[in-house]
Design a protein around this nucleic acid. Structure first.
Lengths: 95, 95
DNA sequence: GTGAGTTGATTCGATTTCCGAAGCGGCAGG
DNA sequence: CCTGCCGCTTCGGAAATCGAATCAACTCAC
């Protein structure tokens, strides 16, 4: 239930999603997230750091922990579903 | 990506989660969601209705569509992960 | 049929969150 | 030095969220 609360906050899902490919720096991460506000990004990152989903490397780059990588795995069915969702909505509006 | 936006809104994940057991009325649904604000609940419900994840029955009760049920299925890995997450955080703070 | 209780739904002012742009100090290279 | 990039902070305004009051419709008891 706490998970639904954490991920119910804007950008948290997206940030985990964008960190899947490996360590990313602060400003680069911001750009990947549609240039979201830097203030909110920092806020979200501390939340994810506290939740032990994200770690900060010696070179200050951010990356997923093992736990965080588990989230990404758990998120993949949702990504697969979103494809079905998109096509279902697409058939709606056409013709 | 639109899915991350929709579910990045507060309560949307929770509402889908709470509708898993079948049709629920407006006020009952509100109570299940920690007595969330009724104004926001209505707003979220119209969003979910527009997204075809939720339908309103003749007796005005809300229930998941087939599409909405797919979301719930896609959410179950996340629920399973949250258990591992909870125990990992639990070991942290103890002793 | 009238009065009390419940339900889905709306309104509105207050609070919280989010945004975005500017700016900070630190650290490169030229 | 100066310029440019970096992680990060500050702050004022905009937007989302809240909470409580309220409405019309419906039920049920009496």
């Amino acid at each position: 239930m706490a998970a639904l609360d954490l991920f119910g906050r804007r950008w948290n899902l997206r940030i985990v999603w964008e960190l899947q490919h490996g360590p990313v720096g602060f400003r680069a991460l911001q750009q990947r997230c549609d240039n979201m506000s830097s203030s909110v990004l920092r806020q979200r990152l501390t939340e994810l750091l506290d939740a032990h989903l994200v770690t900060q490397q010696p070179d200050t780059a951010y990356t997923l922990t093992d736990l965080g990588h588990g989230v990404y795995q758990a998120l993949r069915p949702l990504a697969r579903w979103s494809d079905a969702w998109a096509s279902a909505l697409g058939e709606d509006g056409e013709h």
